[in-house]
Design a protein around this nucleic acid. Structure first.
Lengths: 130, 130
DNA sequence: CAGTATCCCTGGCGATACTG
DNA sequence: CAGTATCGCCAGGGATACTG
């Protein structure tokens, strides 16, 4: 909570993402990654098709893209079983699981404050002088 | 942490965002909102131009868009002073400030684990059999 | 100063079809 | 089953210029 923590090591401001949580936000909160991680964390090791069913509305292309990215980032582990038919299982890694408390905090915050947000929107929309 | 918390109240799965933190992610972690909230939280009440300078590389159009959205969501308060030249100040609200612990957790997680992510990427990229 | 207004452009996503 | 491959789109963002 320092006064100038948003400055980078070399003293210059980081253009674009002038805050220290930029990287982790890109990592965890980019599109589709949160539902995927959530599902993996909640339902344990799963096959590709199970994921596709649980993370509704995601197309196979995008699901694969995100899974590859998560695997590369070390948050998800992919296990290929050379059988017929082939079986691939995905599971969350220890590193991925370390995000669970964070997710829990997010859930807590939502439960406590999301209605306030909705209320604020209502008031904003109901104000004619804008 | 129930077994089927990703199901909505009516028993159906929520298409697209099959996890309970979907809404708060959209609210807080959509593009540009995190650096804006961070800056507002770190440097207190500021004028439009100060924000524009601190959140580097953001264009005025987008900055205004995001500020309006944050105002509507009740996370930011806008104060217009009818002077010449006009002066507008933005500050984080109590509701917005309630996100601070969350941000702090994110910073902590980054400090503890971001190097592991980088390491995982290195290993992934250095593996030829892919 | 604090924004609008306009135009443009891209990359991410969706849909669909196909394969080892 | 577990993905690729290809195509098309369009919302969101960037650049630039202008205004009360």
């Amino acid at each position: 909570m320092g006064e100038a923590d948003w400055a980078t090591a070399d003293g210059s401001t980081d253009p674009g993402r002038a805050c220290p949580i930029g990287p982790v936000v890109d990592l965890v909160f980019s599109r589709w990654t949160t539902p995927i991680l959530w599902t993996l964390n909640e339902h344990g090791r799963q096959r590709y098709v199970e994921l596709q069913r649980r993370v509704a509305a995601i197309t196979p292309k995008v699901l694969t893209q995100r899974l590859r990215q998560l695997e590369r980032d070390g948050l998800v582990r992919r296990t290929y079983h050379a059988e017929v038919p082939p079986r691939v299982e995905y599971e969350i890694t220890e590193l991925g699981r370390s995000l669970a408390p964070l997710f829990a905090s997010l859930v807590e915050w939502s439960a406590a404050n999301l209605d306030r947000v909705e209320q604020a929107r209502q008031e904003y929309d109901d104000t004619p002088a804008r």
